[in-house]
Simulated scan of single mutants.
Amino acid sequence: MLDALTHTTSPSPGSVPIGPQHGAAGSSNSSAGNTQPPARQQTAHGQHGQPQEGQNYISFKLDEKTAHSSLDLIRKDTGVIYRMIGIDPTKIPQNLERFREWAVVLGDTPVSAGRHYWEVTVKRSQEFRIGAADADMSRDECIGVNTRSWVFAYSHKKWHAMLANKTIPIVNIGHPAKVGLLLDYEAGKLSLVDAEKHSLIHTIAAKFLGPVVPAFGLWDGELLTHSGLVVPEYL
């Protein structure tokens, strides 16, 4: 279920279909012109490699057990490449956790409290989805097509927020090489962040009712994830 959402800027009229149409809850666009000074990006560890006290952060890898057969995990399971042919499904371990119909993979670390931030570098992809999902969502559905996943989708050179069979256009973002995601569990918010301009772009409001994990859908190119980051000061 979704909370009502307040728009801070007016979205462009209409919406462009992105794969199966499902998904939308309330969401809000934020101006890319954030006037606050950019904060230096930090990892969640201090100079001596110890977590800094009182900070929320998520450190995860992609869970191979959930990856569709068209997706190859790379860089020690922190990135994913889409293969047009893919792996023969009969040659990969079959289990109930694997997505069977859609090119989706989930992160391996669930979140059930706190504020958490991670980033995604996009390479040579014209169609992908990034966000979060219930850890036990159906493996027969794509992320963004139900009320158990919350995603930002890029397709046909346009961005949309997706949830519950609806899409909401996101304007004034372009195609940044790296974007961030901020998940605030208690507040029920997932935000898309321009990691290069240090500005919040758009927020989806939702009620998280159980553990959620980072979620990724990819239909060409590759995505690299960057976790273990503290929430930037400007957020």
Rank of each mutant, 00 (worst) to 15 (best):
A133L: 00
D63K: 12
K158A: 05
R83G: 06
D88Y: 04
V122E: 02
G79Q: 02
K157I: 06
I143N: 05
E119T: 01
E119I: 00
H116K: 03
V151I: 13
H175F: 14
R139E: 01
K166H: 04
E101T: 15
Y57L: 05
P176H: 11
K158Y: 07
I130C: 03
V104Q: 10
G107K: 13
Y154F: 07
V122Q: 00
E119V: 00
P176L: 09
I92Q: 10
V111P: 02
K178V: 14
Y117V: 01
L62H: 09
A161M: 02
Y154E: 00
H116N: 00
Q126M: 03
Q126S: 05
S59I: 10
K178S: 07
V151W: 06
K166V: 04
Y82L: 01
Y154C: 04
G79S: 01
F152S: 02
G114F: 00
T109I: 13
P110G: 09
P93S: 13
V80S: 02
R124S: 09
S155F: 09
S138W: 07
T66Q: 04
L62N: 07
R139M: 09
K123H: 06
R100F: 13
Y154D: 01
R98T: 11
G107I: 13
S69K: 12
W118S: 03
A132G: 09
F99C: 12
G174A: 03
G114T: 05
E97K: 15
V151N: 06
A67C: 08
K157A: 05
S69Y: 14
R124T: 10
T78L: 03
G144N: 06
H175N: 11
V179M: 07
I74H: 12
F99M: 14
G131V: 03
W159F: 02
M162Y: 04
N146I: 11
F99N: 14
S125M: 02
P93V: 13
V105T: 15
S70W: 10
G107H: 11
W150P: 08
D72C: 12
E141V: 14
G174N: 05
T167A: 05
R139Y: 08
L163D: 04
K123L: 00
D77G: 06
F60Y: 06
D108Y: 09
R148D: 05
M162P: 02
C142F: 15
G79N: 01
E101F: 15
S125Y: 01
D134A: 14
A132S: 11
M162S: 04
Y57R: 09
F60Q: 01
V105M: 10
K65D: 03
E97G: 15
F128G: 01
A103Q: 15
A113S: 09
S70Y: 11
A133H: 04
I81P: 00
E97H: 15
V105Q: 12
R129M: 05
I168Q: 09
F128Q: 00
R148M: 10
D140W: 13
L106R: 12
I87D: 09
A103L: 11
S125A: 01
